[in-house]
Computed example of a mutant assay.
Amino acid sequence: MANEQDENDFIPQLKKMLSNIQFGSITLVVQDGKVIQLEKNEKLRIK
């Protein structure tokens, strides 16, 4: 059974994604109760 450290390995990547996105969305893909994938969909706003 994975420990809490293994289950939270995605958090640094998520924080990096959040710090680099201005407009858009970040999706966490979950399988069997665990995050298996992060997806970033970024929008470019032209004024």
Rank of each mutant, 00 (worst) to 15 (best):
M1R: 13
M1V: 14
M1N: 14
A2S: 13
A2Q: 12
A2E: 13
A2I: 08
A2D: 13
N3Y: 03
N3Q: 11
E4T: 13
E4S: 09
E4M: 13
E4F: 12
E4W: 13
E4C: 07
Q5D: 12
Q5S: 10
Q5K: 10
Q5A: 11
Q5R: 10
D6L: 09
D6I: 06
D6K: 10
D6A: 12
E7Q: 14
E7H: 07
E7R: 12
E7S: 11
N8E: 09
N8A: 10
N8M: 12
N8F: 08
D9N: 14
D9V: 15
D9M: 12
F10D: 06
I11N: 07
I11D: 10
I11F: 10
Q13A: 13
Q13T: 11
Q13Y: 08
L14G: 00
L14D: 02
L14R: 01
L14N: 01
K16C: 06
K16I: 03
K16D: 05
M17S: 02
M17A: 02
M17N: 00
M17K: 04
M17I: 05
L18M: 13
L18Q: 08
L18N: 02
L18C: 08
N20I: 02
N20H: 07
N20D: 13
N20R: 09
N20Y: 03
I21C: 03
I21A: 03
Q22D: 10
F23N: 15
F23K: 12
F23E: 13
F23A: 14
G24L: 02
G24P: 00
G24N: 02
G24F: 01
G24K: 01
G24V: 01
G24E: 01
S25Y: 05
S25R: 09
S25T: 07
S25L: 10
I26Q: 07
I26V: 11
T27V: 15
T27K: 13
L28N: 04
L28Y: 01
L28V: 07
V29H: 12
V29M: 08
V30F: 04
V30P: 03
V30D: 01
Q31C: 09
Q31E: 15
Q31Y: 08
D32E: 12
D32A: 11
D32K: 10
D32M: 10
G33Y: 02
K34F: 03
K34G: 06
K34S: 09
V35D: 00
V35I: 12
V35S: 07
I36V: 15
I36G: 09
I36P: 02
Q37W: 02
Q37S: 11
Q37P: 00
L38D: 00
L38M: 05
L38K: 00
L38F: 00
E39Y: 03
E39N: 06
E39R: 05
E39F: 01
E39D: 05
E39T: 11
N41H: 05
N41S: 08
N41Y: 04
N41W: 00
N41R: 08
E42P: 03
E42F: 08
E42Q: 14
K43V: 09
K43S: 07
R45Q: 14
R45S: 15
R45V: 15
R45N: 14
R45Y: 05
I46P: 05
I46H: 11
I46E: 12
K47F: 06
K47N: 08
